[in-house]
């Protein structure tokens, strides 16, 4: 079991595969720590496709709540 933060400048819905994981940020605009099973997972964001990469497969392993894996999406300019 692992812990992941999905970084993006806006509050966006996060998908692992086809399954929504809720939003990357809470109502106070703080990053939410998502609980994710260990191993490779394919992440993407919901909403407008104004980010890159469009999806990314990352391996979740050796994470903690204090040191979660950061999955970073950049906003297209």
């Amino acid at each position: 079991m692992g812990y992941v933060i999905v970084e993006f400048p806006e509050r966006r819905e996060v998908f692992i595969g086809d399954d929504s994981q809720g939003y990357n940020r809470n109502e106070n605009d703080e990053y939410r720590i998502l609980i994710v099973g260990d191993g490779p997972h394919t992440f993407r964001l919901g909403g407008v496709l104004n980010y890159a990469p469009s999806s990314q497969t990352v391996v979740v392993a050796n994470t903690t709540t204090i040191n979660p894996l950061r999955v970073i999406f950049k906003k297209n300019v």
């Binding site: 079991m1 812990y3 703080e30 939410r32 720590i33 609980i35 903690t64 709540t65 204090i66």
Partner: peptide, 29 residues
């Protein structure tokens, strides 16, 4: 899961006491 949540909460409390300006990397519900 309970231990991880407790670890996160303990760390948050410690951080707030020792270094109020710092923030945790994220919020664990």
């Amino acid at each position: 899961l309970n231990q991880d949540a407790k670890g996160w909460a303990d760390c948050k409390n410690l951080l707030q006491a020792q270094c109020p300006a710092a923030a945790m990397p994220g919020v664990l519900e």
